[in-house]
């Protein structure tokens, strides 16, 4: 495997379970026992009701494209060969929105509202990224 040169996530004591989950091919997010909400990005207590009573819970990995852009300029040299590449904001069925790259779809076929599902991309031995591909709605 060629050396991975793209930026890697800022893994912290707070978001470690999210990244551990992806490595095990599961998307987990903080879930509030008090108000029944799932949120992103990770926080030390529920940003909605401020309860500390939360756990990491598996989510569906399904969502829709909320918005998307296509980069025609290479800001990172490591993305130069990907130009023009798309970045999507995916809204999960559970509510939170994640930025991601889409796979198995041409840029011209992307649309707002397009149903997508998570795929796991092991970019290094330590890091797995959540990317998304089209699914039947």
């Amino acid at each position: 495997m060629a050396e991975y040169t793209k930026p890697l996530p800022a893994i912290s004591t707070l978001n470690q379970p999210y990244w551990d989950g992806l490595k095990q091919r599961q998307m987990v997010l903080p879930y509030c026992e008090a108000c029944d909400k799932v949120w992103y990005p990770p926080a030390p207590f529920c940003p909605d009701c401020w309860s500390r009573d939360f756990r990491w819970q598996a989510v569906s990995g399904r969502g829709v494209v909320n918005s998307w852009v296509v980069f025609h300029q290479a800001y990172f040299s490591s993305f130069k060969d990907d130009i023009p590449y798309a970045v999507a904001e995916v809204e999960l069925e559970e509510g939170p929105r994640l930025l991601t790259n889409l796979v198995e779809v041409a840029n011209e076929d992307i649309a707002v509202g397009m149903p997508v599902e998570v795929v796991f991309d092991d970019v290094t031995d330590e890091v797995t990224l959540a990317k998304f591909r089209p699914r039947k709605g």
Binding site: K6, P9, N15, S67, F71, Y75, L99, N101, V112
Partner: peptide
């Protein structure tokens, strides 16, 4: 941690203030 002020997430090549504005424009 938790992203840039204009929606940046460099892991996915999402970078620059203009990209966040492009996300708003598309929407």
């Amino acid at each position: 941690e938790a992203g840039g002020g204009h929606g940046e997430d460099p892991v996915f090549g999402m970078t620059s203030p203009g990209a966040g504005a492009a996300l708003v424009a598309r929407k």
